[in-house]
């Protein structure tokens, strides 16, 4: 009996571990390293209506325990993703979560309408939180009303459940979460990167050509946990948690905070085998901690102890 399977809107996951969008391309690179069938799902790179080159280089900078990126949503565009990338992924028995991005409401609606029809796309991840594009993106993710309206419009055209990816660059993440829940979101993914910057010691100028970028890696984990802890107590939709996950222990911590599944981002760049390693290690960790099934861990940080009693009997 599986101890890791999770049922979420649109997603029957054999395990709750998936690579995060933007950290796994469209899967081809990692498919040379291991069988993608071991993954719970794959969150593919953000797709916009037209192809995008993205920002000038340097696009990455480092800080202890983290990295900054300002890729700028580089992607081959909707048509190519639907005609080439998604059909290639059909060889795997893995649900795809398509990350939908754009500059205007119309952009999001167009991508969502078309990409949600792909047979292996089981859910959308609405990217209203990319900090690295000049227009759109994060603007939709920092205003509750805009976030709600966009969610409604995308829900109206999508053939699959819609998860909204929340930005941590807000003063009240609960209000955004509630707004998109009101707008009809089926779930949340959180968190996207934290806006940051690094400066060059010699020149005094920003290291990133885009000046600022999104901070990710273990350094953001406490922020992600706190936000998932706050949001999961205030909404009735599931959360796919992400932000600095490196190990099976980190996965359990995200579940405790309130996540029902997790995504691994930056660590794929350092250890390309991190997802299969975590999936392998989770059952033993559950045994050590005394759980039958990983779902027992969700929200343990705030749920009343009695709610767990029947699981443990």
């Amino acid at each position: 009996m599986s101890r890791l399977n999770i049922e979420l809107p649109g997603l029957s996951l054999k395990n709750p571990v998936m690579p995060a969008s933007g950290c796994f391309g469209f899967g081809k690179e990692y498919s040379q390293l291991y069988d993608l069938n071991v993954l719970g799902a794959i969150m593919i790179k953000a797709t916009t209506p037209e192809p995008r080159f993205g920002n000038p280089t340097p696009r990455v900078a480092e800080t202890p325990g983290g990295m900054l990126n300002a890729i700028g949503l580089q992607n081959p565009g909707l048509e190519k993703v639907v005609s080439e990338e998604l059909p290639w992924l059909e060889q795997y028995e893995v649900p795809i979560i398509a990350n939908v991005a754009g500059s205007t409401e119309e952009d999001y609606v167009r991508v969502a309408e078309v990409i949600s029809k792909a047979p292996n796309v089981h859910a959308l991840e609405l990217n209203i939180s990319c900090p690295n594009v000049k227009t759109g993106g994060i603007a939709f993710g920092t205003d509750p009303e805009m976030a709600k309206n966009l969610t409604k419009k995308v829900k109206a055209v999508s053939e699959v459940p819609v998860y909204v990816k929340l930005s941590p660059n807000v003063s009240n993440i609960v209000s955004i979460a509630k707004a998109v829940e009101d707008g009809g979101a089926d779930g949340l993914t959180m968190i996207n990167t934290l806006l940051g910057m690094r400066l060059d010691l010699q020149t005094g100028k920003p290291i990133l050509a885009n000046r600022t970028g999104g901070l990710s890696g273990p350094v953001v984990k406490p922020v992600a946990l706190r936000m998932i802890y706050e949001v999961s107590q205030q909404v009735h939709i599931p959360i796919i948690g992400m932000g600095g996950i490196q190990s099976a222990e980190d996965v359990i911590e995200f579940f405790y905070a309130g996540a029902s599944a997790v995504a691994v981002g930056t660590q794929n760049f350092i250890d390309p085998f991190v997802c299969p390693t975590i999936i392998d290690e989770l059952p033993q960790l559950l045994t050590q901690l005394g759980y039958q099934h990983i779902s027992e861990c969700t929200g343990r940080s705030w749920k009343q102890h009695e709610q767990f009693a029947y699981h443990r009997a």
Partner: peptide
């Protein structure tokens, strides 16, 4: 030479025109 992230083509840190 370019600053790299993953080194395997997934992160798009080291692209050029």
């Amino acid at each position: 030479e370019e600053r790299m992230g993953c080194g395997i083509g997934a992160c798009f840190a080291c692209v050029c025109h």
